[in-house]
Design a protein around this nucleic acid. Structure first.
Lengths: 198, 198
DNA sequence: GGATTTTATTTAGGAGTCCTACTCATGAGC
DNA sequence: GCTCATGAGTAGGACTCCTAAATAAAATCC
């Protein structure tokens, strides 16, 4: 037992603090980008979510993605609609629901909107980014199990993901959908072909 | 070159997306905690910052820590003062400035306020947490160099930190302040003894 | 020493966030 | 058909977060 094991705050707490600091930076960058494009961070998050799903999404799904209540998401979508970036369609299969879809302008804006964590991620080289992606995916998987995060279309929760089927190789995982080997660096947070594991 | 290297979004972007998702979860948890204690996330962040520095901090320092403008920090501090969690002292050495200090109640609340990233971090075992802490510190160091983050009292920006002076050992780093060896798991985001490196 | 510039904080005004609570309409189950 | 659950929207309120401008006290320049 070294000196520091005795005198330090718990590892988990220091890690949580560090992530909080990075989050503060990302939020600040988000607000600066907001000014340039006329969107707020929540609006931008929802716009990108909607733009990534051309088939349309429910309001509640957008709220879950952004981590806000339906009422807040409704406000944000109203603002996006006013700016002609998103449109609402009634859902034929459910008269209560609406389908949100990005307009052409919305697609364009979503595509050029910078990821708020980009300058944060830029601090790591490719190997470290790969290692971090692996750890982040592990966190997402855990949160998913605990129902603390909205369903993600991530590899680690996908029916087609085969984890570590070729241990020791450079690409130990496999995606059974495209039937190809994968490394940690290939893991996706949001894959269009995702099918939830049973 | 495998299938996925060709068809995937860039690694950096997927990592940034993942961190955004984790941030959304943390923000949501923050708001839930806020309801229980009567604080908003920004207020809580500033309160913890003030509570960790008994000698008092400037308003601008608190704003930088939280990643908001001085005007916003001023609002939050006013709210904290109204709740008797923080008090303002005039700074004898600078008549323009104020010194923020936590009251007894403020100290107590800061101590029991949960870290918003706690459930996120809980998804990793100790080894993975250590690996992630190392990567997070690297990100903080990089942001610090780029002046994208307020000065942190972190080991990696400290005068007393000797990085990797004993390569290969279990505790390769050393803190020259307490003159003791350190491992990655001992790295601190916010150390009271921090002295900025030249 | 006095004028100018910079810095620290506050105030004002406005759009937006985010909550709870409530309403309204539709869908699902018995 | 009747009841209950669900998706979305509205209303009200505290707070966030911004810019811009005001105030006051350094710090700097000549």
């Amino acid at each position: 037992m070294s000196t520091f094991d005795a005198i330090s705050e718990p590892l988990a707490q220091r890690l949580a603090d560090g992530l909080s600091r990075l989050g503060a930076v990302a939020r600040q960058i988000d607000w600066q980008a907001a000014e340039a494009e006329g969107l707020t961070p929540t609006q931008a998050d929802i716009l990108r979510f909607v733009a990534s799903r051309p088939a349309g999404v429910r309001l509640a799904a957008a709220a879950g993605h952004a981590g806000v209540r339906s009422a807040t998401a409704s406000d944000a979508v109203t603002a996006l609609q006013r700016k002609a970036l998103v449109r609402k369609q009634s859902d034929a299969s459910d008269g209560r629901a609406i389908l949100l879809k990005a307009t052409r302008d919305g697609q364009a804006l979503a595509a050029r909107w910078p990821a708020s964590y980009a300058p944060v991620v830029a601090g790591l080289d490719a190997d470290d980014q790969e290692a971090m992606l692996h750890l982040v995916m592990e966190m997402i998987r855990h949160l998913h199990r605990r129902n603390l995060i909205a369903p993600q279309r991530s590899c680690v929760t996908c029916k087609y993901f085969r984890e570590n089927v070729a241990p020791g190789s450079g690409e130990p995982h496999r995606c059974a959908f495209v039937d190809a080997p994968m490394a940690d660096r290939h893991l996706r947070v949001d894959c269009p072909e995702h099918v939830a594991a049973a």
